[in-house]
Nucleic acid binder design. Structure first.
Lengths: 160, 160
DNA sequence: AATAAACTGGACATTGTTGTCTTTTTGTCG
DNA sequence: CGACAAAAAGACAACAATGTCCAGTTTATT
C-alpha cells in the first residue's frame, strides 16, 4: 500500500556495503568506515554485514585492526548473491492458494509471477559487483554552479 | 532478512482478486464471494479492492446486489496495473544515497538496480489478466488418488 | 598481562504491513 | 417509507522489518 522498489531496504544496504568494500580492495574495513562512506545506520549495518558473512560473501576478522573484506573478487559476486544473502527471493514452487489441486502445476497467475521472479533473478545473477564499481572515486566534485531544475526532494506520498 | 518474493502480499491478493472477477465476467461480485473463492481474509481484501477501485481498475456498486466488477476488459488490464495500484513500484530517479553529487546521474549500483526494476515493470506490463485466466474452471477435480510426495505445508522460517 | 579495537549476539524500540472489527453511507426492494 | 445488503471509512490489534543499544568475546599491540 506504500511505495516499494522490489528489493528490501536491507538488500539495498547490503549492496551498498559490498560495493564499498570492493572499492577498498583487500584492506579490512570496519562497520564504522562502511557506515560513514555509505551513509547507513551503523548498528543495523553491522547486522547486515553479519548476514553477508554467514552467507560467505564477506570475511570478518575480529579484534584490533579487524574488519570486513570480500570473500571473493568482485567479479565473482553477483547482485543476486548479495540480495539472496539478506533477503532470499524464491520462485513459487507451489501455488500459494491453498487449493491442494493447484499444487502440482502452478496456476497461470503464479506461473506468470514466477516468470517475473525468474527474470529478475536471472538478470541479477548476470550483473556482478565489478560491473557496478564507480569509475571515478566518490569524492565531492568541485562545486560547479550548473543551472539545474530543482528536483523535488520530498517523499512523494500521493493521497490519491 | 526474511523470505520475500518481489511483490508484496497485498499485490498478490490484488491479482488473485482481479483474476477472480475476470472469471465472473460482467456480474458484480461481493468481497465475500471473492474472499471465499480466493481464500483471502475478507476484511483485508475489502481494503485491497477499495484501492483497486480508486485506481480505476475495478468499479464498485454499493447497496443491495452491489459488488465489484472490472472497469475494463481483462485484456486491457496488465499485471503491472494491478501491482501498481496497491503497491507502487518506482524506478530510482535519484540515488538514494544522500550524496548530492549522485543526484544527477545515478551511480552504477543504482543504475543496475534501476535496470532490474525496469525489466520487471516492462515484463509485467506485457502480461494482461486475460493471459492468466485459468483454462479449466477452478473446481475441485474428481479426487483421483495419484501417488504424490506430500509437499511440506509449513511456512519455512529459517532462523539463520 | 593489560588494553583498546573490533566483531558477535541479544534485548529492546520504532515503524510499516497485514489483518480484524465496528460504524457509516449508499443503494435496492417490498 | 422501512428493511436490508453491500461498499466505505476508520479504529485498532498482531506481526514483521528496521533501527538502536549494550554487554560479551576475540585479537593485535604494548
Amino acid at each position: 500500500m506504500a511505495a516499494g522498489s522490489l528489493i528490501s531496504q536491507t538488500a539495498e544496504y547490503a549492496l551498498r556495503a559490498v560495493v564499498c568494500l570492493a572499492q577498498h580492495a583487500g584492506e579490512a574495513c570496519t562497520t564504522q568506515i562502511v557506515a560513514d562512506e555509505t551513509h547507513l545506520p551503523q548498528g543495523y549495518l553491522a547486522k547486515v554485514m553479519q548476514s553477508l558473512t554467514r552467507a560467505g560473501i564477506l570475511q570478518s576478522k575480529r579484534g584490533l585492526h579487524g574488519g570486513f573484506t570480500l570473500a571473493r573478487p568482485p567479479s565473482e559476486i553477483s547482485i543476486f548473491d548479495v540480495i539472496d544473502a539478506v533477503d532470499p527471493i524464491r520462485p513459487y514452487v507451489t501455488c500459494p492458494l491453498d487449493f491442494p489441486w493447484h499444487c502440482e502445476t502452478l496456476c497461470p497467475l503464479h506461473r506468470s509471477l514466477d516468470d517475473l521472479i525468474i527474470g529478475f533473478i536471472e538478470q541479477s545473477k548476470r550483473t556482478t559487483i565489478e560491473d557496478i564499481l564507480p569509475r571515478d572515486e566518490p569524492k565531492p566534485p568541485p562545486r560547479r554552479r550548473s543551472p539545474r531544475k530543482a528536483l523535488p526532494r520530498g517523499r512523494r506520498r500521493a493521497s490519491r
